[in-house]
């Protein structure tokens, strides 16, 4: 495995995977606890319009997509900020329109034959060094913003109404959050592609949530989990010559289902133990016995 690191493209791929993992750990945590997974998916897919736009105008992929995803995110924020829990229709529409726009813009781009698959499923093995710098910048900005507004994000994510009453600018934070989601999504598209972004944004935080007692702990842990799963996926894809983005997602998915299976088995084990012990010993804490 180590001899593979002499290839620059693999070193870049590793770096891209790690950067994307950190972004996913931090932003994915906020996505999961705010229950806006569908919205994040909408932004990811609508970002395809940005890819089309970048090609059409002859801009570098990153700039066109950043700009477009950011605009889409702001539109979504404006349309959903009032009624966060009933925004699925709006999201669905923007999701579809963004993608359709991307396809049409690519049609209109003369003589440009884009490798669609690389955007849909990621192109981690072809990430150029310049994109790595952009990714590092995004990760730095996102992490710094979350750090700066950490307690406000905690208050908003836990109970937005209460936070608003305490004077936390909940609306502004919501726009900021969606903006950060959009730029994070763009860099993660490089790694696993826009269709699979959602898995990387949600699976590691979902696993981490179960073992964390604070939001920052969840961010840290899910970044770590994401790094491990991404590296493992990358290794498998290199070893058996598989599509790297899809392999990374399958590894994430496997971890997710293993966790759920483990939980089920543990719950069952606990039930069996209780059933075998009809009378709990008296010296037990009575509150424990009630449970």
């Amino acid at each position: 495995m180590w001899e593979a690191l002499q290839f620059e493209f693999l070193r870049n791929a590793l770096m891209a995977g790690l950067l994307a993992s950190i972004a996913c750990g931090v932003i994915g945590t906020l996505v999961v606890v705010n229950r806006i997974v569908f919205l994040a998916g909408g932004i990811a897919h609508a970002a395809y319009g940005g890819i089309g736009l970048a090609c059409f105008l002859g801009l570098p992929y990153m700039f066109g997509t950043f700009g477009f995803a950011l605009v889409v995110a702001m539109i979504m924020a404006a349309m959903t900020v009032r009624d966060r829990h009933r925004s699925d229709t709006v999201i669905g529409v923007l999701w579809a329109v963004g993608m359709a726009l991307g396809v049409v813009l690519l049609d209109l781009t003369p003589g440009y034959n884009v490798d669609l698959m690389s955007y849909l499923f990621g192109s981690i093995l072809t990430v150029p060094a310049t994109d790595l710098w952009a990714m590092a910048a995004v990760v730095t900005v996102v992490t710094a913003l979350v750090f700066r507004f950490y307690s406000a994000f905690v208050a908003m994510s836990y109970d937005a109404e209460f936070a608003r009453l305490r004077g936390v600018p909940v609306g502004g934070l919501y726009f900021l959050l969606l903006g950060m989601i959009s730029i994070s999504v763009v860099i993660v598209i490089q790694v696993v592609g826009l269709i699979l972004v959602i898995a990387m944004l949600t699976i590691p935080p979902y696993i981490a949530e179960k073992f964390s007692d604070s939001l920052w702990g969840m961010m840290l842990l899910s970044s770590l989990i994401s790094c491990i799963l991404t590296l493992f996926g990358l290794w498998i894809s290199y070893r058996w010559n598989l599509t790297s983005g899809a392999t990374i997602i399958l590894v994430n998915g496997a971890a997710f289902f293993l966790l759920i299976l483990g939980e089920r088995l543990r719950a069952r084990h606990r039930r069996m133990k209780l059933a075998c012990r009809p009378n709990p010993p008296l010296e037990d804490d009575p509150r424990e016995a009630v449970r």
Binding site: A152, R166, S214
Partner: peptide, 24 residues
């Protein structure tokens, strides 16, 4: 959200948030 990873102390501290102060 019941699954929210937050301690009792941190929940109560959200009652002390002051936007005019540094967020840290």
């Amino acid at each position: 959200n019941r699954n929210f990873p937050i301690s009792v102390m941190d929940v109560v501290l959200t009652g002390r948030i002051d936007p005019s102060r540094r967020w840290g």
